[in-house]
């Protein structure tokens, strides 16, 4: 059925005409300018005082490779400790118990309020405060023996991370609809079981993107543990350039490895996100 008869005339039919491509002169200009700048910087580095052969030689040196392994081990363990503490502290923070709530607030305040490098130094030097540590009557040891660079770095990084992660976790738990708590209670669940079975799995979906961010931060924050002699990537690079004075070359080696690791982590995060998006999109299977 046509309604052409009822439409006013004087308006040409445009439906057959193609739309011409717009010329983006400004885009071409800025692109050219950026390429020019990058070329200049690249040339400067190529002609600068950098021995690129040292970069390629040390890129796969055993000490550097061991440094990356140590960096990743520390990042994973400290992040695991941080996530564990973060969940516990977030649950305490959201608890109706005012004592637990205050403890959670105090923890976040203390460890978020002081520099990470200072906390690492404090853990490493804790023997100055407590020469021996242990359980009275059962077991004790000299603190210098126990507080190795590894344990100091783990505690320093993990406990600090826990303070940040608790806020991420709390946001995730608050994002879950209150009706979910009620439905869990209605089938007889207590608070902790409801958190573990119903609330946290749903909170994970919201929490993974910021946690991925935090983990990437953690990989780089392990470099701070070089100040307490933990043999991670930066510390290994430093040890080499203390011997051969190729400071920039070794720093570039370390930088390339950090970049590579972070580049690998990004797609891993996307896989995790997909896992926890179960049930939340129409295409989820």
């Amino acid at each position: 059925m046509s309604n052409a008869a009822t439409l006013a005339g004087g308006f040409p039919d445009l439906s057959k005409l193609p739309v011409a491509r717009q010329a983006h002169w400004m885009r071409w200009f800025t692109a050219a300018a950026i390429v020019a700048v990058l070329l200049t910087i690249g040339r400067a580095f190529a002609n600068g005082q950098i021995e690129w052969s040292y970069v390629s030689r040390f890129l796969t040196a055993p000490v550097i490779l061991q440094g990356i392994v140590n960096t990743m081990v520390m990042a994973v363990l400290a992040m695991a400790l941080g996530i564990f503490l973060g969940i516990v502290v977030a649950i305490m923070r959201l608890s109706p118990n005012p004592v637990l709530k205050s403890v959670a607030l105090g923890y976040t305040w203390l460890f978020r309020g002081t520099p990470l490098i200072l906390q690492l130094l404090l853990w490493f030097n804790i023997a100055l405060v407590f020469p021996t540590i242990g359980i009275p009557g059962l077991w004790s040891a000299r603190a210098v023996d126990i507080m190795t660079p590894f344990l100091s770095a783990l505690l320093g990084l993990g406990i600090n991370q826990g303070a940040y992660t608790s806020e991420v976790m709390r946001a995730g738990m608050l994002s879950v609809d209150a009706g979910q708590y009620e439905a869990a209670k209605a089938i007889g669940m207590g608070r902790l079981r409801a958190l573990r079975r119903i609330i946290l799995p749903q909170a994970m979906r919201v929490v993974i993107p910021p946690l991925g961010n935090e983990f990437i931060g953690m990989v780089k924050a392990t470099s701070l543990a070089s100040v307490i002699q933990y043999p991670e990537l930066l510390h290994s690079a430093e040890n080499i350039y203390y011997a051969n004075s190729r400071v920039i070359e070794l720093l570039i080696v370390a930088g390339l490895w950090y970049l590579l690791v972070v580049s690998i982590l990004t797609p891993l995060q996307m896989l995790l996100e997909r896992r926890f998006a179960r049930g939340f999109s129409q295409t989820a299977r």
Partner: peptide
């Protein structure tokens, strides 16, 4: 929680566990 086991509740907004 134990006493709640004797009652079943159906909510206006369903509140199924989406995951």
């Amino acid at each position: 929680a134990r006493q709640r086991l004797k009652t079943g509740m159906v909510f206006q907004r369903f509140n199924l566990f989406p995951h």
